[in-house]
């Protein structure tokens, strides 16, 4: 049961709401909505926003070491886009009544979650290519689905993000292709990165459908239109042949093609690791939050100074 869902199913308002959604109408900020719908969306959207912001850290750390001018320009643009996507998403959550102060406080205190994939370290330059291809590729699948979701501001934010995200995946794929056909050092570096990022990427799609009790309600509310396992399978089917064509291997001895269905069957995900990282005990959780808290605290005098300046302009203006 979704937290806050005390709505009586016989309630005519709730029924009218679900009928609107079934007709394909968008819910806008001022419309009546069940409290559970509002709460669920605020949580989803703000966590999505936090993911973009935290995601800037593992990649941003490599801007200074990008090994060509071209890659520097590309990575700077990509990370800048991610900050912009955070903006679009915080905006969407604000339309539901959340404030940025509250959302940021929730992130910094550890109460709010963000995509666990960013709790893994970027250990080499090859990680940047693999993250672009794998992680942004997975995000695009998820976001393409969310672009059709019932809440207007979230779906509009997703449309904008999807358009911008496509270069993120392409630049990563280009890097992996180059490295997999490059020097021995590059081939080893990129294979190592693939080995480390494959499973965390698959975990981005969330727990098994059987462990995802919110999914049926989210599907009825047209917030999700595909389940976690469906999206995950689509991703695997897309990626595996392309990775193999490059001469790279995947860290899954159980990976094999089911000739009958055409789907790639894969080994079991380490759900212990998944819940550990989601719960705050991944390799970089503490570092990520500490970095965000520090930026916020260090910036306190800056924000206050500009507020003071603005207040005086209003008085004298």
């Amino acid at each position: 049961m979704i937290e806050g869902d005390t709505q009586d199913l016989e309630d005519p308002q709730a029924q009218a709401f679900e009928a609107r959604i079934a007709r394909g109408e968008k819910v806008e900020p001022r419309d009546w909505m069940p409290e559970a719908y509002r709460k669920q969306l605020i949580r989803m959207i703000s966590q999505h926003a936090h993911s973009e912001i935290v995601g800037m850290l593992p990649e941003g750390a490599w801007i200074t070491r990008a090994p060509s001018l071209r890659r520097k320009l590309v990575l700077l643009s990509k990370v800048q886009d991610e900050a912009g996507h955070g903006e679009y998403l915080y905006h969407a959550a604000e339309t539901l009544g959340a404030t940025r102060e509250e959302m940021i406080e929730a992130l910094h205190s550890g109460n709010a979650k963000y995509a666990s994939v960013f709790n893994y370290p970027t250990l080499s330059w090859a990680d940047i290519g693999v993250i672009g291809w794998f992680v942004d590729g997975a995000a695009i699948l998820n976001q393409t689905m969310l672009a059709k979701c019932s809440y207007g501001p979230y779906s509009r934010a997703m449309v904008r993000i999807c358009a911008e995200e496509s270069f993120h995946k392409k630049q990563g794929q280009e890097m992996v292709i180059l490295m997999s056909g490059g020097t021995p050092n590059q081939r080893q570096m990129v294979q190592d990165a693939v080995n480390r990022w494959w499973w965390p990427t698959l975990m981005m799609f969330g727990p098994h459908d059987t462990d995802s009790p919110n999914t049926p309600q989210l599907v009825r509310w047209k917030i999700k239109t595909r389940t976690n396992d469906e999206l995950r399978q689509t991703f695997i089917d897309q990626m595996v042949p392309e990775i193999m064509v490059l001469g790279l291997s995947l860290p899954d001895p159980d990976l094999r093609l089911d000739e009958v269905t055409g789907h790639w069957r894969h080994g079991e995900i380490d759900w212990d690791e998944f819940w550990r990282v989601v719960g705050g005990n991944g390799p970089c959780n503490q570092d990520r939050l500490a970095a965000r808290r520090k930026a916020h605290d260090d910036g306190s005098w800056v924000r206050r100074a500009l507020s003071a300046y603005a207040a005086r302009q209003v008085q004298t203006g």
Binding site: S77, E164, S166, F167, Q171, E174, I177, L178, V245, L246
Partner: peptide
């Protein structure tokens, strides 16, 4: 002027096609 923000700037698709053809 910032063409690298557009997906068409990247050669991933043509590179993949060339590699698949070679295979």
């Amino acid at each position: 002027g910032k063409l690298y923000r557009q997906p068409g700037y990247y050669r991933a698709d043509s590179m993949m096609r060339a590699i698949k053809a070679r295979r």
